[in-house]
Simulated assay, not measured.
Amino acid sequence: MADISYFDAWGMWLAGKSTLGHDLLGLPMIWWGRFGKILSFVAGAAVVVDLVGPERLTRYGERMTRFMARRPTGGPFIAGLVTGIAVLFVAEPIGVPWPLELLLGGMLGGAAGLLAVRVGRTLQDPELPMTLKWVSLGLFFVGFHFDLLAS
């Protein structure tokens, strides 16, 4: 597969030629398109925020924070355990050595536990809905851009 520059990719697209079969920054264009689709889907978070409403997000964040405070080791431990097991299920079939599996599972599991605590606090921020809307708009534009470029 030929490696093309960003501007070459746009030149090909504008000329009506498919960019599929080429690499951009070492990654096949089909993957750039897939990442674009994923980002566009994630951008739908703004719709979720509008449907759920900021008051419900704040209440959920308060409940999550209280749960983590009541069980300082239980909540993060469960989030970490689930993440660690998911890493093992993904890493095992692709042949990752078991010490690296344990290291990845532990690190990502610990990060998931800390993230659960942080998400609870973040959901209580009154500026969160507006911030999510702007981030979603940016993700939508970037995602649509790469999806279009890979078409």
Rank of each mutant, 00 (worst) to 15 (best):
40 S>D: 08
36 G>V: 03
44 G>H: 01
137 L>W: 11
30 I>W: 12
64 M>K: 06
59 R>C: 06
31 W>S: 09
5 S>P: 03
105 G>A: 15
45 A>V: 14
5 S>K: 06
40 S>H: 12
57 L>W: 02
49 V>T: 07
2 A>T: 12
20 L>Q: 15
146 F>E: 06
18 S>Y: 02
131 T>I: 12
44 G>N: 06
84 G>K: 08
110 G>N: 04
53 G>Y: 04
4 I>A: 07
96 V>L: 06
76 P>H: 00
34 R>H: 08
83 T>E: 10
143 G>D: 03
30 I>S: 10
112 A>W: 01
87 V>C: 07
95 G>A: 00
112 A>Q: 03
112 A>Y: 00
147 D>R: 14
136 S>G: 05
53 G>E: 00
80 G>M: 02
74 G>W: 05
88 L>S: 11
43 A>T: 04
145 H>P: 08
85 I>A: 14
34 R>Y: 10
102 L>Y: 14
118 R>H: 11
50 D>E: 11
51 L>Y: 11
99 P>W: 14
121 R>S: 08
70 R>I: 09
100 L>W: 08
101 E>S: 13
88 L>Q: 09
123 L>N: 02
61 G>R: 05
115 L>A: 15
99 P>V: 03
140 F>K: 11
98 W>Y: 09
112 A>K: 03
16 G>R: 00
145 H>M: 13
117 V>P: 04
40 S>K: 10
92 E>L: 11
45 A>W: 13
48 V>W: 05
130 M>H: 09
97 P>V: 06
118 R>L: 13
57 L>S: 00
73 T>W: 15
58 T>R: 14
25 L>Q: 15
93 P>N: 02
28 P>D: 09
75 G>C: 05
